[in-house]
């Protein structure tokens, strides 16, 4: 077997792919959050930012396809791992007492799949604007797509806002285990740095939740209008 396929068929090689793609997606999640939080500064910076991204043209598609590839690889490899893990367990115990595995750790597949469903909805909602096609017609006075109004209108629906808060909650839960876990998988862990990754990962996942959830909450409570 050639060295690359041999590495990718090993348990550790596959976990590295999950961790590297997880890290890449995590980077996007952080960047996307910072971009969105500009909504609190006002329409001008947010619309300018949206316009800048649209202006990237072909380059935007390179980024999009890169993200898609990472997501597909992440999902394909986690499914492979999960199937192998289930087969390896064999006869179940009559009684099992868990001592260490946290709830977010045990929910990775579920939170991951929910995030996947959310990503599909989210793209239809705000990127393709298929859920409410009137979003396509929103333009600001400089003729740019009015991302700001789209966010406000989108989140004025209680159902949509509630759904987003739950979804980013699940994403944060995925990262609650995922961030610490990825450093362990990539071999960047030791007794010395372990508390940093574990506590830092949990703290960071909360930041992600609060950062993303703050936008629908601010719209619903009328802080943003």
């Amino acid at each position: 077997m050639n060295p690359i396929s041999s590495y990718l068929s090993s348990s550790i090689g596959r976990k590295w792919i999950v961790a590297l793609t997880g890290l890449g997606l995590f980077g996007f999640v952080v960047g996307h959050m910072i971009g969105n939080l500009q909504v609190f500064i006002g329409p001008e910076p947010l619309n300018r930012y949206g316009h800048f991204l649209q202006g990237l043209g072909e380059l935007l598609w390179v980024v999009r396809l890169g993200l898609l590839a990472m997501l597909v690889a992440h999902v394909v490899f986690t499914i492979k791992l999960r199937l192998e893990n289930r087969a390896a367990r064999g006869t179940p115990y009559a009684v099992t007492t868990r001592r260490a595995a946290t709830l977010p750790a045990r929910m990775m597949a579920l939170s991951g799949l929910m995030v996947l469903c959310f990503i599909v909805f989210h793209l239809l909602h705000f990127t393709a604007q298929k859920i409410d096609p009137s979003f396509l017609a929103l333009h600001d006075d400089k003729g740019r797509h009015d991302v700001y109004r789209m966010m406000i209108l989108g989140f004025q629906s209680k159902a949509a806002s509630g759904f987003y808060v739950v979804a980013v909650g699940l994403l944060a839960m995925h990262l609650n285990h995922g961030i610490g876990s990825l450093f362990q998988t990539l071999g960047l862990n030791s007794a010395k740095v372990r508390p940093l990754w574990e506590k830092g990962g949990v703290a960071f996942s909360w930041l992600i939740f609060l950062g993303y959830a703050s936008i629908p909450v601010a719209v619903l409570t009328g802080v943003l209008k």
Binding site: S11, N85, A87, R99, A100, A101, R106, M108, T185
Partner: peptide, 9 residues
Amino acid sequence: FGNCSNYLE
């Protein structure tokens, strides 16, 4: 044997 999910059990 299965793969590690970092459950730490």
